[in-house]
Design a protein around this nucleic acid. Structure first.
Lengths: 239, 239
DNA sequence: ACACCCGAAAAGGTACTACCTTTGATCTGA
DNA sequence: TCAGATCAAAGGTAGTACCTTTTCGGGTGT
């Protein structure tokens, strides 16, 4: 391997192609349990397995180490860590778990997290949202009812994602907002998996609207309660 | 720099000393805003600044990149990212923010997160805790009353941390459990900063006990409500 | 036979060098 | 003035050499 051998699919604009490939491959294997806790890797072995230089392998190992997926031990190699050590909020770890056998568990955990975070976020949004945010949220709430009643599931999903994202944003808490992508993935996943009824239930539509209006009107308690009610059904179906 | 120059304080057991130092220094500067969004670094510059090789600098940059603190751009250098891009759940990012000017904001965010997560965790614990966990939690609840009434603040803190950690663990949700260290830091921080009254209030003692007993008795609704009540006071003092 | 010590080897950590690739900036010519 | 070609800066990758830590095994002494 003197120069090339960039394995075909190399997006030109992308910064660093090799690392991404290797990190994803190993991360996925660890998340899936293909590489179980205590499994040992070596830099040299990976070098040959992926056909890259030590430099690249080490970079990748640093990244996996920073997610607590592996820990390097001299004379031993790179030891795979158990799930309780992982940085389970790292978007990549979540994605790997969602793409493998751990999908159901990850969904359950994320749903609990939604049930915890979103009501509080709604309450904070009712207090801190800007004027424009309040209006937009209220408009989205009405859109949701229209799309839901019309049975336009895909459009409903898009607006639903925007709605929940905006609530997180309006909460003013960056730790809540950081969950937007993951929550969007949960919402999308429910639709894709057909976990949604063909027509969103009246209760859900009403709850969305109530949350939206409560936030618009600055009623924190109502926003929190209605968001709880909205999440209760989907949450209980999982426990 | 041929061999040595390990700057004195090199813990022997610790794996890799250089990277830790550099990552911490830069991470802290970025978290503090000393290196604001858009600031540019170069590998060469850091090499000289820290007196280490390119290898080490690149390893560190990979770690910071994986936290979304920087993004490498060819011909430009390493560009510092804005706070909205950071992996705000990475324990190191949280620690850096807690150690600098962002401390108050980070505390506020974490308190909101506690208010969101802990009640749900308590409810889940009431449903899923093992027998041993239920007994232990109940015992800790009683200990807290005793220590609180006796005014033993330090011992109270230790038991309080164990209590909240155990609830997170008993919830069975690994994303909740992953917050244990951060939550422990918040609890400890409150005591250190003297934000706690010298004698924990009767209301807090009672709420702890009620949560503990509700979990022991498998009463999810009560556990959730009492945990909410417990967190309400500290939470409202912050908004 | 057991315990201790020491040496060898394995594996990661660090340094250094050379070259490729990308990309912004500059310079030149129409 | 603008478009295109050229240049150079900075990161990306490869490869090599050597240091340091750690484990294992064998040898030695009691």
């Amino acid at each position: 391997m003197t120069s090339q051998s960039v394995p075909a699919g190399s997006p030109p604009g992308a910064a660093a192609v090799f690392p991404t490939r290797i990190i994803d491959a190993l991360g996925q294997d660890i998340a899936d349990g293909v590489l179980p806790e205590g499994a040992r890797l070596t830099i040299e072995g990976l070098q040959q397995q992926f056909g890259v230089s030590r430099t690249v392998v080490r970079d990748c190992m640093r990244v996996l180490e920073s997610m607590n997926l592996i820990v390097p031990k001299r004379r031993i190699g790179l030891v795979v860590q158990g799930p309780e050590r992982w940085n389970v909020y790292d978007p990549r770890v979540i994605r790997w778990r969602l793409h493998g056998p751990g999908r159901a568990d990850q969904f359950r955990s994320l749903t609990h997290l939604r049930r915890a975070v979103e009501p509080v976020a709604a309450a904070l949004a009712a207090r801190h949202a800007s004027g424009a945010q309040r209006l937009r949220i209220a408009a989205l709430g009405e859109d949701l009812r229209r799309l839901g009643e019309a049975g336009l599931l895909e459009e409903f999903l898009d607006v639903d994602i925007e709605f929940h994202t905006l609530v997180l944003e309006a909460s003013g808490n960056e730790m809540f907002l950081a969950l937007r992508e993951v929550i969007a993935e949960v919402l999308a996943g429910r639709t894709q998996q057909g976990l949604m009824p063909h027509n969103p239930k009246e209760h859900a539509l009403q709850a969305h609207e109530q949350v939206a209006f409560a936030i618009r009107d600055g009623d924190a308690a109502a926003a929190e309660a209605c968001m709880e009610s909205l999440l209760a059904e989907v949450s209980e179906a999982i426990d």
